[in-house]
């Protein structure tokens, strides 16, 4: 150990194992993933490791990806739906370095997509795995901060508290005021946190053809939704679940029924609304779709 730094040479990346994690850690995570798949929506505790990026910055997703990735994989990493957000760039560069895998920004080409806060607009297919970065995996955490209590609630399928909370929303605001991390019921058994994706994305989880894996590093939990699994957003008969709608299409590619980012253009109220999913937007523009602000400088900046 001392010899390493005495020679002034930082440990070369080659001295780390393929995909950074040691094999024993990978086996531990892989066992947790198999159990997570077998019990859809149940949070499997795992001995999360310290990673070379901070907790809260995707360490759970990174550990899941590191445990499953192989040399044949093509990796896409998105944050807020975009491939070029700094943390997505950083995580993608990490895997390009430690696993020497091909990376892509194209949803269709990826075999593993690691994401924070969005599900791609393009429908995912059977050969793909979507890995979510999860900050707080426990959907009941904000109603009951104690793990000892929430674990009991899941064990007993005691989800009344969640329905009370949602109903209080309706009483106060006339609607359920949860806009992201909107809780879902998986296969009629476990209430699950979909990670802080906007509720717009919830329907994409339902009976998805892709395997969905969720990693929470700081909270040390892994959970999963297998393909073709029932994922239902919690609601009430008289207040059915609804997703966000936008009253205009993407300003660059004219896409409708996609999630849009609001971009502030000036200090006098100028705004434009563009696709949050940058790959989807680029793809559409390449196909010749043009929005009302196509050619805007923002387009080249993206």
């Amino acid at each position: 150990m001392s010899a390493q730094i005495a020679t002034d040479a930082a440990p070369a990346i080659a001295s780390y194992n393929f995909a950074y994690l040691d094999e024993q850690t990978k086996r531990m995570i892989r066992r947790a993933i198999l159990k997570a798949i077998a019990i859809p929506g149940y949070q499997v505790p795992f001995a999360s490791r310290e990673m070379p990026m901070p907790y809260g910055w995707g360490t759970g997703g990174v550990q899941v990806t590191a445990a499953i990735i192989g040399p044949e994989d093509v990796l896409k990493v998105i944050d807020q739906g975009a491939d070029d957000t700094t943390n997505a760039v950083s995580i993608r560069a990490f895997f390009a370095k430690v696993a020497n895998v091909a990376t892509t920004t194209r949803t269709m080409e990826a075999t593993i997509i690691q994401t924070r806060h969005r599900i791609p607009e393009t429908k995912l297919s059977a050969g793909q795995v979507l890995v979510y970065q999860v900050p707080i995996p426990e959907p009941l955490r904000f109603l009951e901060p104690r793990e000892t209590e929430t674990r009991k609630m899941h064990a007993l399928e005691e989800y009344g508290l969640m329905h009370v909370k949602l109903y209080e929303d309706i009483a106060r605001h006339g609607e359920i005021s949860t806009t992201y991390a909107y809780p879902v019921m998986v296969e009629g058994r476990y209430v699950m946190d979909p990670s802080p994706t906007p509720k717009f994305d919830n329907p994409k989880m339902h009976r998805s053809e892709a395997l969905q894996l969720f990693g929470a590093g700081r909270e040390k939990r892994i959970y999963a939704v297998p393909p073709f699994t029932e994922v239902v957003s919690l609601d009430f008969e008289d207040h059915p679940f609804e997703i966000q709608t936008f009253d205009r299409p993407c300003a660059l590619c004219a896409a409708e029924n996609v999630y849009l980012d609001e971009v502030v253009l000036d200090d006098s109220g100028g705004r434009m609304f563009v696709c949050s999913d940058t790959d989807h937007c680029e793809d559409r523009r390449a196909q010749g779709h043009r929005g009302e602000m196509a050619g805007h400088p923002l387009e080249t900046a993206k």
């Binding site: 807020q80 806060h117 969005r118 806009t179 802080p196 906007p198 999630y259 980012d261």
Partner: peptide, 13 residues
């Protein structure tokens, strides 16, 4: 510190 990462998708919601 993760609060400094982009959260604009959720903020939009």
């Amino acid at each position: 510190e993760h609060l400094k990462l982009p959260h604009y998708v959720d903020f939009q919601a």
